[in-house]
């Protein structure tokens, strides 16, 4: 199976490691992830403040670049998915905008058709790889208490993931799912650069609640939520810092990859297994 990979801005610098982990995990399941090299930053729901049209055309271009290579597009970040999906819906339901956009894309020999699917990493794992395959390939049981954290943009404004998906993966990896009071609370990542104090309060609220539920790790399918939890807990003055795993890292560990190849040696909050 081949699916075009949308890189976005999530994998710069140190987080390049996360990209490698995703590729490693997917290769185990026979999924090739050719990077669609023409894709660019989705605008992070920030470019929308300047112009919704600019955001739409950038993301029409991202999808059109994958369509040109006859590929669906796999997106690993919740916010990128929300923003690209929003553009796709607008274009698929509004011929006038689609025509305006395609007129500009034509200069780059691109055309937005809207025929290919866009996937977020989590529903892709659930629907295209499947729990059965996942279960067959797991080698290492991870008998720890994991707190699943979905992240807002998988659920709002549109719910694109089935309830219990992360929980099921945790169980397949040998872990125990832990529920906690603040599991639907936003991690505040998007206000780090607009109002940091609010972000820190959000991180603290969630992590303290996870601690109270006695979980040992946080698991999230969103690289932004992951970064928020890994980088800001100290500054947020949480009672006790809890290490966080990006969902592909959890799967990598249970597939038997080394700590280094699973990405966990690059975290700010040490992951001790």
């Amino acid at each position: 199976m081949r699916i075009g990979f949308y890189r976005g801005c999530c994998f710069q610098g140190l987080d390049f490691v996360l990209l490698d982990v995703i590729k490693r995990v997917f290769s185990v399941f026979g999924v090739e992830l050719p990077e669609v090299r023409k894709t660019i930053c989705c605008g992070g729901n920030v470019i929308d403040e300047e112009s919704r049209f600019l955001s739409t055309i950038i993301n029409a271009r991202n999808i059109a670049a994958a369509e040109k290579e006859n590929l669906d597009l796999l997106i690993s970040c919740n916010t990128c998915f929300m923003v690209i999906n929003r553009a796709k819906k607008l274009l698929d339901n509004n011929d006038e905008t689609k025509e305006k956009v395609n007129k500009i894309l034509k200069e780059e020999n691109l055309l937005y058709k809207g025929e290919r699917k866009i996937w977020h990493l989590l529903p892709f794992i659930v629907e295209k790889i499947g729990f059965e395959k996942l279960s067959k390939k797991t080698k290492v049981k991870l008998p720890y208490r994991f707190a699943p954290y979905y992240g807002c943009h998988l659920k709002y404004p549109e719910k694109i993931v089935k309830d219990g998906s992360i929980e099921r993966i945790i169980e397949l990896c040998g872990g125990t799912q832990i529920h906690y009071q603040e599991e639907d609370t936003c991690c505040g990542y998007h206000s780090i650069y607009t109002d940091k104090a609010t972000s820190l309060k959000k991180i603290k609220r969630i992590v303290d609640s996870i601690k109270e539920a006695e979980a040992e790790f946080i698991v999230t399918p969103c690289p932004l939520c992951f970064k928020g939890f890994d980088m800001l807990q100290k500054e947020a003055k949480v009672k006790t810092a809890i290490p966080v795993l990006f969902l592909p890292e959890l799967i990598a560990l249970s597939l038997g990859f080394s700590h280094k190849d699973s990405g966990i040696t690059y975290h700010k909050i040490p992951v001790k297994l």
Binding site: N45, C152, Y156, P157, G188, S191, T194, D195
Partner: peptide
């Protein structure tokens, strides 16, 4: 009134 404090979680839209 802290307009830049909105975390853009999209719950109000949902």
């Amino acid at each position: 009134a802290s307009i830049w404090s909105c975390v853009q979680c999209q719950k109000c839209v949902a």
